Simulated assay, not measured.
Amino acid sequence: MPSPVVDDYLKSIYHHTEWQDRHITPKQLASVLGLAPSSVTEMVQKLAAQGLVSHQPYQPISLTHEGEQRAAAIIRRHRLIETWLVREFGYTWDEVHDEAEILEHALSDRLLEGIDRRLGHPRFDPHGDAIPDADGRVERVPFVLLADAPTGHTGRVLRVSDRDPEVLRALEDAGLTVGAEVHVDDAAGRAVSVAGRAVPMTDAAASAVWLSV
């Protein structure tokens, strides 16, 4: 079985529980990967047979220890490459995901570790996602999704989803970049303040930003 196919499944399962606690369902996984549910069910059964995931029929999917270690390794590659492209080549944070998807399977371990050293062993990528260390460990702090934050909450932007480049560009224009302090003026109306400036938020944007608690 081609490694990139397996890695894409494991990454998607890993991503799903990074910023919330519910395990991914086969239907959700099929949607993320853009595949037919029947194809995903078949592949999940193969991954379970390899000891990479735990899954019972009609139940959510979780990674085994071995599956989590493999997912963390490929995610480490992806996020180091994204950081490298932004810092060394002037890419913007909305441009790096697709490039990293290609390069993560092409770079040698030696080159990847050289990139890590050159960057000073970064702990977070440009979007605020934690970069697993060589042993698969990550550093996280308590967080709340902006869409769930109550009126009056103030927190730093910890992470911005890289799923939609258009949303990323809009958030950058509004000043909602990683590290920015955000005050929730009206949760119901999706209004926030950044550096004392009122910023209206769409539902898509509010669901793409995580704040410190």
Rank of each mutant, 00 (worst) to 15 (best):
Y58P: 00
R140M: 13
V96H: 07
P126H: 07
L47I: 12
P37H: 13
G51P: 02
Q59K: 10
K46I: 02
V86R: 07
E113I: 03
L145A: 06
F89I: 11
L35Y: 09
H65R: 15
G34R: 06
L52A: 08
E66F: 09
A134K: 05
L111G: 06
R77C: 03
V96C: 05
H121S: 14
R140D: 06
W19H: 14
L35M: 09
G128E: 04
A30V: 02
S54L: 14
E68M: 12
R117Q: 09
A49Q: 15
L107V: 03
D21N: 12
G136D: 06
T64R: 02
A72W: 00
D133T: 06
E66N: 11
Q69H: 06
T83P: 02
S38H: 09
G90F: 14
T83Q: 12
H97W: 04
D135H: 08
S62T: 15
R87W: 12
H55Q: 14
I115G: 03
H15M: 08
F89T: 11
P26I: 08
A147D: 13
D129Q: 09
V40K: 01
D133N: 13
H23A: 13
T17P: 13
L29Y: 00
Q45S: 13
E99I: 14
I75L: 15
S108V: 04
L119T: 08
D109W: 07
T64M: 02
L33V: 03
A48G: 05
G114E: 10
V138R: 05
H78I: 02
S108G: 04
A71E: 04
I102W: 10
I115P: 02
P122I: 03
E99S: 13
A100D: 05
G114F: 07
T25P: 08
D94E: 13
F124D: 04
Q69E: 00
H97C: 03
G90Y: 14
Q59W: 11
A49Y: 09
D109A: 07
R70T: 03
G128Y: 02
Y14P: 05
P26H: 08
K46W: 08
A72Y: 00
R117I: 05
H65L: 11
T25V: 02
H23W: 12
R70K: 15
L146F: 06
I102A: 09
L80R: 03
E95L: 07
P132A: 00
A73E: 15
F143N: 05
A49P: 03
P60F: 04
V144P: 05
P142M: 01
I102E: 15
P57Y: 04
F143C: 01
E42N: 11
R77T: 00
E139I: 07
Q50V: 01
A71C: 10
L119V: 04
T17N: 10
Q69Y: 06
D98N: 10
G114D: 10
L47C: 00
A49S: 15
A130R: 01
D21L: 14
A48D: 09
R22F: 08
L145R: 15
L52R: 01
D98Y: 05
A36V: 13
